[in-house]
Design a protein around this nucleic acid. Structure first.
Lengths: 232, 232
DNA sequence: GTCTATAGGTGGATAGAC
DNA sequence: GTCTATCCACCTATAGAC
């Protein structure tokens, strides 16, 4: 018999005052759905991880899927907020892009289950549960990112023969891919499954920024010799 | 008891016509595991999709996980073979990289469940079931890709201040991310969940090649004094 | 090789005591 | 608000007929 041990709520991240049972359940759900996936996660797993009784989950949430949705909604909302703010204070488009990649890496390190949950939502539900929040991100952070690139293009610092929105996806993709395919990348780099350290994530994020800025940099005026590739 | 176990009979002949029952089951497993995931896929789903009886699966495979592993093994082996060959005939490093991105897109279009299965393996099993095959890809296709970049660097066509292996990951990541995050990218680009068409995938792959080549291109010699552009 | 039937186990969800 | 006890559907895997 397991003794009461009321809501010990030793949530790993104990963000703030996650005193409430409801939050403890959502925190547990984040970790458990991330590591096991929606179907493989049972109500009993969630209850055990949250330190509460299984029946209690049904007091706070209608059913398993509702609980999942609320967890995801909370997560993506938090993420979107964090994304938007960081690019603001940058002096130049270059600086803004560097900040963006660096921040991507920090988020991946701080909330390692974030990419897992988002990827699971993509494959399990085709992002249907997150459509609204992704649309919000598109309207804020992604739009800002595109704006940064377009500004660089208008100011003559970035080349104009790349589509700004596709370029923005190229920017996002690099560190995001590293976060998703981390075990595979570890093998590709010769270190094995678990070899990608946080420090390596940061290194790669710096590389990604270098790569991006090299790609976007306006070609030197070039001494009129003309380039064979059609420009402009 | 363990049946025949003629595991290698399908290497070359798995093209189209599902000759044997065993192959039909593996084909069904590819589709079903991709769309539902490992846990949510039941033996009955697999049997129904393959058009056979549930008990028959246990005649050909020891259990559900063995079936899954064999399906994944077959898939990744096929994929690795396809990857390796395509870069060979390229005249220049630039051409090789263009071919690589284009081929990534074609694979994603031809085998749409491939990224899904690989991503599921990543999140569900941390790529443990695919370690061997990924190591093989690392030793062949990825090594070739790195070699192409290094060759361009040695020949003075590519800049040398980018790490070749990180650059190779930047190359891979762009189209791969598009394949994984397809619904989300659709939303980001303003079209909605299902808006990314095969044609758009090809467009993006061309963009990714442009982006990559712009990033890698050696900066113009520049009148020696050069601007030591401010890098923190 | 392929099927029917079923054993044995687990999961989501509810009723109701406290 | 939190727990005990439980129902029923469904799932994996096996036994054994044909």
């Amino acid at each position: 018999m397991t003794p009461p041990e009321t809501a010990r709520a030793d949530t790993a991240a104990a963000t703030a005052a996650t005193a409430s049972t409801r939050d403890a359940i959502l925190d547990a759900a984040e970790r458990t759905f991330a590591s096991r996936g929606f179907t493989a996660t049972t109500i009993k797993h969630l209850a055990a991880e949250a330190g509460v009784n299984t029946a209690l989950l049904y007091y706070y949430f209608a059913d398993k899927e509702t609980l999942y949705r609320e967890m995801l909604r909370r997560l993506v909302t938090r993420f979107a907020a964090q994304l938007s703010q960081q690019m603001q204070g940058a002096a130049s488009p270059e600086e803004a892009l560097r900040r963006f990649s660096a921040m991507q890496a920090e988020v991946l390190i701080d909330v390692p289950h974030l990419p897992t949950l988002l990827v699971r939502e993509l494959v399990d539900f085709h992002a249907e549960h997150a459509e609204e929040q992704i649309a919000h991100i598109a309207a804020t952070a992604f739009k800002t990112l595109c704006g940064v690139i377009e500004r660089g293009q208008r100011e003559g610092r970035f080349r104009t023969d790349l589509d700004a929105r596709f370029a923005a996806i190229s920017v996002v993709s690099q560190v995001a891919y590293m976060g998703i395919a981390r075990p595979a990348v570890g093998i590709l780099l010769g270190g094995g499954l678990g070899s990608v350290t946080p420090e390596m994530m940061r290194d790669f994020a710096r590389h990604a920024a270098d790569f991006t800025l090299a790609a976007l940099a306006a070609p030197k005026p070039a001494p009129r010799k003309a380039s064979r590739k059609g420009r402009k």
